[in-house]
Structure formats: structure tokens, C-alpha cells
Simulated assay, not measured.
Amino acid sequence: VTPLGTGNASSRALMYGGTAAYLAAQELRARLSQCAANLLGGAPGDISLRDGHAWRESNGRRIAVAELALGAHLRPFTVAAGVTLPLEVTRSFAPQNVRVEPDAQGRIATYPTFSYSVHAVALELDMATGNSRLLDYAVVHDCGAMINPALVEAQLRGAVVMGIGVALWELIKFDEHQRMITDRFKSYLLPRANDLPSIRVGHRVTLNPFHPLGMKGAGESGLGGALSAVTNAVANALGDDARLTHVPATPARVMASLEERRA
């Protein structure tokens, strides 16, 4: 059913598929504008499409888009003069800054853009138990043009929580027979709502010059930034003499680090 492809990963759905749809819509709009100009007079550049109608702005004349589409098929030599029919467009999108040929160092560049973020976290570390309690979290995020800000912010918050979980609680364990024993929610510890502070989110918009809509990836930086910021906060709370070499910073690992420092 689905053609070959890389799948929906690394923000590719909107960055690639959405852009192909945008380019197709632009071309279809141009064809409809030519059809409208054929009927209303003037040039295609004088035509505006809005509210289900094509408008000639200079004199206020209009025609329904549905009527245009029907006329293009029923009267192609007049309504659709100069237009490639049918009124159907297929477009693809390939970013120009992807490089699949290795450079002098043998490197390729298969991803066209990256999101950016700055994370700040405050946490309290219980030196008697090794438990970490998050007090505050703030992040400023830049994914270029935001097509749907509500979805971007929700995705960022979800990614931040994933990073917090990897930093503090989520640990896969196996028994002596190499069978996974953290195979349920009682043993594989995920962040719960009452484990988290309110995550304060800010946005900065820096348009991507390599993309027609100025977009960048939206999800990746939340996880990596949260993992780094929370781990650094635990290490800072432990002090300069303590060593924290693995994630997550479970209470057992924190206590082991403190015991090593005392020894």
C-alpha cells in the first residue's frame, strides 16, 4: 500500500510530505488563477483565492472555485485555456543541503535541518536516600517556522519528559539468564505527572534558509537537552569529588557515588 521510503521519522512528515503538499497546492492555485483570469479578465496575478471563490481584485468580480473546476473539465478550450489539465498536481520535495556522497573525511549529511533548544533545570538531591526531586524546568526552543504551535509545544513537552525519564528512572535490567525483568510499569519506572514540575516553554523562531517554509525538526532537541540538563544537575548536586558515569541516576547509583567519595 505504501511506496518505499524512510518512514515518518525525525520530523519528516511535515518537513518533507507537508512541503510536497505545499508545492502541489501552489501549482494548483496557479492553474485555478489562470482559469479565473480567462473568465473574469485580467492577469492570473490579479486573482485572489479565498472563501471558496476566485476574486479579481481590481473590480470585485468573483466566481466560485467549484464552478471553475467544473468549467475546466466541461469547457477546457475556454475556461482552461493555457492550463495543463486535469486540475491535479503531483509534487515531490528534496532538500538541497542533503549530501549522500562522502566528503574528504568520509562524512555524509542525510538530514537537512536540526532543531535547537536551551534547557535549565533545578532539582533537589536527598543525600540520605539518593532520590532526586525536580523543582523547576524551563526550555527555550527553536524549530524555525511553527505550522501548528500547539502541536510543537506538546511534542516538545513530551520529549522533555522522555529525557527526564532517561536521566533519572528508566533502566532496563536482565537476570542471569538474560531475560528482561523490567517488563512492566512496576519495574520499569516512567515519569508520572506528580514526579514533574510545570515545564515552562519559550519559543524562538529562526527561519531555516534551506527550506521553502523555513521549518526545522521539532522533536529531537527536547529529549537530548533534558537528558543532559537533568544529568548535569544531579552531578552538580553531588559535588566535584563524586563521579556519575551512567544514566539513569538511580538512587542506588547516586548512593554508590557518595560512598565512593566518602571512601
Rank of each mutant, 00 (worst) to 15 (best):
V1T: 11
T2I: 13
P3T: 13
S10E: 07
R12N: 08
A13T: 15
M15I: 15
Y16Q: 11
A21G: 09
Q26V: 10
E27L: 06
L28G: 06
A30C: 04
A30L: 06
A30N: 11
S33Y: 00
A37E: 01
N38R: 00
L39S: 00
L40I: 01
G41N: 02
G42H: 00
I47H: 00
G52W: 04
H53T: 10
S58C: 13
S58K: 10
G60T: 05
R62I: 06
A66C: 11
H73C: 04
L74A: 14
A80R: 06
E88K: 12
P95A: 07
V98R: 06
V98G: 04
E101F: 05
E101I: 02
E101A: 01
P102K: 02
A104V: 15
G106P: 04
R107F: 08
A109K: 14
S115T: 11
V118A: 15
V118R: 14
D126A: 05
M127S: 08
M127G: 09
G130E: 01
G130S: 01
R133Q: 14
R133T: 14
Y137L: 00
Y137A: 04
V140N: 04
V140L: 04
H141S: 01
G144R: 03
I147R: 02
E153Y: 07
E153A: 09
R157D: 15
G158C: 03
A159T: 09
M162A: 07
I164S: 05
I164W: 03
W169G: 13
L171N: 11
I172V: 15
R179W: 14
M180C: 13
I181S: 06
T182D: 09
F185H: 10
Y188W: 07
L189G: 05
L190Y: 14
P191R: 04
L196T: 05
L196W: 00
L196Y: 07
R204I: 15
V205A: 11
T206A: 04
L207H: 13
L207G: 04
F210H: 13
P212E: 02
A218Y: 08
G219C: 08
G219F: 09
G224Q: 15
G225V: 06
A226G: 01
L227N: 02
N232W: 08
V234H: 02
G239F: 03
D241I: 10
D241H: 11
A242C: 15
A249P: 12
A256T: 08
S257A: 04
L258K: 01
L258C: 04
E259P: 15
E260N: 14
R262E: 14
